[in-house]
């Protein structure tokens, strides 16, 4: 921060009050452009279908049809979709955090034969796009009878190499002296993980939590491949079905789309620090 302040002061002369005003005006304009689709979504979701494309467009509907938000629950099994999505996202996130934080301990704080080779293996697969091996995964899932169940998604997404990598990077910043001291005091390796390393790594856990939850919630291609029956669908593919069967009910589609954004939006507002700083420090893909 102080670096930034100094830099700003250094620039101060060339950058007067007028410049500052122009800067804020530009930023404000860009923020508006960024948010317009969401506002449009909200506005359209409160209209009647023929109103959505009326010229000129009205941002505030003549009468707000809040009933649209009731109707969508009757038209498609939105409740089922939400339940399934919550189930998948919660299971995947819990498994990710548990297995990744556990495995990362061995990579970061222990010595054993084959460690570096194994870690290279993990890193290597991060570099392979999932689209390259989605078909073999699909064949495998079909053969073990998990096709068209949400278990297929849970099983496939619970053990990512990315989670291990993220946790390991954070563990490396925890001083080894802490672990050594605990070992001398007679704590087992499991004890050190549970009582010292994991509690110190809570920021990384928070980052992994929000990354995984948001990604799983928003995942479209996985459910598209695996889920066919309505009772099993997640919200993303459910929305897709909605648009296919009620093509011109724009107002209802927008209402459902907006509903699908709510959980992640709340999570983002509460935890955005971990999300944004997680990206800035690890600099890695979502």
């Amino acid at each position: 921060m102080s670096v930034q302040t100094v830099a700003r002061r250094a620039n101060g002369r060339a950058f007067g009050i007028l410049g500052k005003a122009a800067l804020y005006a530009a930023l404000f304009l860009l923020a508006c452009v960024t948010l317009i689709p969401f506002v449009w979504m909200l506005s359209s979701s409160l209209k009647l279908d023929q109103e959505v494309f009326r010229y000129p467009m009205r941002w505030i509907p003549e009468t707000a049809h809040w009933g649209n938000y009731v109707e969508i629950w009757r038209k498609i099994p939105l409740g089922t979709y939400f339940q399934n999505t919550v189930a998948v996202a919660a299971a995947v996130t819990a498994m990710q955090i548990l297995t990744s934080s556990f495995a990362a301990y061995a990579f970061a704080k222990m010595q054993f034969r084959g460690r570096d080779a194994l870690f290279l293996c993990y890193i290597g697969t991060i570099a392979v796009p999932w689209q390259v091996y989605m078909l073999p995964q699909f064949i495998m899932m079909r053969n073990i009878g998990l096709y068209d169940t949400i278990w297929a998604l849970v099983v496939l997404q619970s053990f990512s190499a990315f989670g291990v990598f993220l946790m390991r990077q954070f563990y490396l910043t925890i001083p080894n002296e802490l672990c050594e001291a605990a070992r001398i005091d007679g704590l087992s390796e499991y004890g050190i993980w549970a009582r010292i390393v994991l509690p110190l790594a809570m920021p990384a856990v928070a980052t992994l939590f929000i990354f995984t939850f948001v990604n799983t919630w928003n995942d479209y291609m996985g459910p598209l491949i695996y889920l066919t029956r309505d009772a099993n669908k997640t919200i993303q593919v459910g929305l897709q079905r909605f648009i296919q069967s009620f093509t011109s009910d724009y107002h209802l589609i927008m209402a459902a789309a907006l509903c699908s954004l709510i959980p992640v939006t709340i999570l983002f507002l509460v935890m955005q620090r971990y999300f944004i700083e997680g990206i800035a420090t690890t600099g890695l893909k979502g």
């Binding site: 928003n218 993303q236 927008m254 907006l258 699908s260 992640v264 955005q272 979502g286």
Partner: peptide, 14 residues
């Protein structure tokens, strides 16, 4: 940053 966390399906339909 917000568009990045919002679901692709919802925003692409919009």
């Amino acid at each position: 940053f917000f568009p990045y966390v919002s679901s692709i399906v919802a925003i692409c339909m919009c």
